[in-house]
Design a protein around this nucleic acid. Sequence first.
DNA 1: AAATTATTTGCAACAAAGTTGCATAGTTGC
DNA 2: GCAACTATGCAACTTTGTTGCAAATAATTT
Lengths: 138, 138
Amino acid sequence: METQIDNLLKRNQLSVTGSRKKILELFLASRGALAHGDIEKKTGEKFDRVTVYRTLQVFLEKGIIHTIPTADNSIRYALCKDECSEGHHHDNHVHFICTTCGNTTCLADVTIPEVKLPVGFKATEFQMLVNGVCMECQ
Amino acid sequence: METQIDNLLKRNQLSVTGSRKKILELFLASRGALAHGDIEKKTGEKFDRVTVYRTLQVFLEKGIIHTIPTADNSIRYALCKDECSEGHHHDNHVHFICTTCGNTTCLADVTIPEVKLPVGFKATEFQMLVNGVCMECQ
DNA sequence: AAATTATTTGCAACAAAGTTGCATAGTTGC
DNA sequence: GCAACTATGCAACTTTGTTGCAAATAATTT
Ligand SMILES: [Mn+2]
Ligand SMILES: [Mn+2]
Ligand SMILES: [Zn+2]
Ligand SMILES: [Zn+2]
């Protein structure tokens, strides 16, 4: 019997290894986004730091996860919901950062509004970050 | 005769020192936002790395500059236009990141559109990042 | 199922980025 | 100009990220 995780990896032409499975598990288990440091802590001594870097790198390239910019020098990563692929991501949703618990959430149902740019600027991607207090922390 | 820069510092109850003046100069001279690394390079051997860190820190606290989140672990800093103060910033404008030249621009005239959040989420701040090609790089 | 091939991992060594304590230098207010 | 205060540079350190390479593991072939 093949698990959901194994399938996800194979579908992306990735060999199925312990670290990849474990890191995907973490993403599936966590509500919000994860920083590199989070993953390192949660996988504990199981994997080398370098492996975590390389795994995230590969997942990004394959469109399995996407990045969320932050203002504190610690990129967050979250699973792509839709069918994002090698080059093309379709994560046009808003990201919410709770100032109380620190969690970053993908608001998958909140679409980023369009915005008019000054003449001369050509946009290829819009991102929206919202700071505030999340559901659990009210 | 007092310069614009000296005044800005005094108005914020900061002592007027070489590094602070130089770093403010840099911000005033540059079109876009600056990363810590940029500043370090441009100030050359004039100042210690630690001084740059501490200066940016102070400017942030005083509301002289604001941060711009990025997806590459290198926060950008830009001068606050309006009267931002100690605690309260009013930089509700869109930030544009050119994928060609790498420059980050404050689009001071482009206001961030409001967006409805799911029940339970309370927003305190909205940020918007746009990637694309800037005026000069077309 | 064993052997071959290809890929991934951990380790070591390193580079870059960021932090802290403290003596010295510089700035401010009188 | 002097005393009080504040900022700076330096050193030492931690944390974060990168690279090359040999050993381990996974996929593919026979
Ligand atoms: Mn997301
Ligand atoms: Mn700005
Ligand atoms: Zn929260
Ligand atoms: Zn440009």
